[in-house]
Nucleic acid binder design. Sequence first.
DNA 1: ACAAAAGTGTTCGAACTACACCCATGG
DNA 2: CCATGGGTGTAGTTCGAACACTTTTGT
Lengths: 244, 244
Amino acid sequence: MSKIIPNISVDCVIFGFDSNQLNVLLVERKLLDEQTSETLIDDWTLAGYHIFEEEDFDTAAARILKRLSGLDHIYLEQFYAFGGVNRLNKPKDQLWLKHQHEGFSDRIVTVGYYSLIDNTSVTLSLKERNVKWFPVSELPELGFDHEEILQKALEKLRTKLRNEPIGFELLPEKFTISQLQRLYESILGQSLDRRNFRKKVMQMKYLIPLNEKQKDVKHKPAQLFLFSKDVYERTKKERFDFTM
Amino acid sequence: MSKIIPNISVDCVIFGFDSNQLNVLLVERKLLDEQTSETLIDDWTLAGYHIFEEEDFDTAAARILKRLSGLDHIYLEQFYAFGGVNRLNKPKDQLWLKHQHEGFSDRIVTVGYYSLIDNTSVTLSLKERNVKWFPVSELPELGFDHEEILQKALEKLRTKLRNEPIGFELLPEKFTISQLQRLYESILGQSLDRRNFRKKVMQMKYLIPLNEKQKDVKHKPAQLFLFSKDVYERTKKERFDFTM
DNA sequence: ACAAAAGTGTTCGAACTACACCCATGG
DNA sequence: CCATGGGTGTAGTTCGAACACTTTTGT
């Protein structure tokens, strides 16, 4: 393993959807006093780490995701870089950095990625660290400037979601129209008419109906669909529409 | 002046519009052999520089713009961070860095900003460096990985232009509908119907008609308009429309 | 009078909105 | 048989596309 770059890191805002609400994966940051066992720090942060000397940003972000999930090929998008002079200057953050003994600089710049995964099927974990999903509407106290990073990620995700079909990354491979609608509603924070939503998405050629239905539901089982990235790429058009 | 950070820089893709086409401002990179006067390097780069220790990214980008133009408050937007391991590894780039004597690292990461200015009114210059506007369709040879950075900036600019009224930043304060249309046509690379374009933009409440017309044109003088950022911010709505 | 760009209106089809009832399944 | 969410159609309106002639100014 090669040397880390002391002043550059990558942080990942990992979004998941549990067929009801949008969640973010956070890592617990806990520090006890070595003598008194008093809790000095107990809050949460994004998953992130410094980049290594022979690594570019995408690789570093993929490495972080791989360590959490074991998976490659997760959807990842660089969304913003954060370089505020005082971004790690709160006393708690300084204390934490001091205890890391890894030769970090005290002026660290970070590149933000957001990641979309279907959190009904994958379990994420990190050795020696506690890891947990939080609904974006009920966040705990966040360390460093991670609250700001998370809000920026959300904003960029919303913009992207309005313009490109990336929502599918948050769903299981096979999903129903209602699941898709709940996803859009919960990310965009508005409710949508069921019939009109259906009509709209059914026109999309990249939404492939399957000869298969939901099982084990206590109501009329819904038809399942696939998202075909392939068809999307081949049929997408550019839009011109500066919004009023 | 405080110390530079040796491995982090900001590069600015400065876009201008000359009422005909989209241009980019580039800085000449020229290096002569000290003995033979042979030209070792002669190409062009984006305007950029390392960040200083007590500077965040936005400040660094504004500083670079200020040095070129003397102006504050120019439209600036961070669009992407570039950290490829080999981004400065071409022999020419190594040669250039060696001659700078400023203690740069050889693994430099850069944060890209694009900037929009009305280049009919402002003249940009840099002491001891040659600076020039190039149409984006006729770029010279670019140093470092600046070709890649520029293309990414263009792509992000197009996306932004489709979704938000930022084109006005490239026009004089008072402009005609035709100028606006030519701007959209040249950035998006498609021609638009004159009557429909007019109809569309005339609905926008933030486009303020003035009691004033063009002067000294050898045809029917056009009405002038203002863009009101204020009205825009107060009347904008969110759109939901993942494109097919 | 001519050249050059400004300004203007209508028709057609597509897409968006709002809205209410029956269906299939498990318990 | 009941509760739960799945699935469907229509009418009214708004929005985008296509398209040609007249006006104002400078030379």
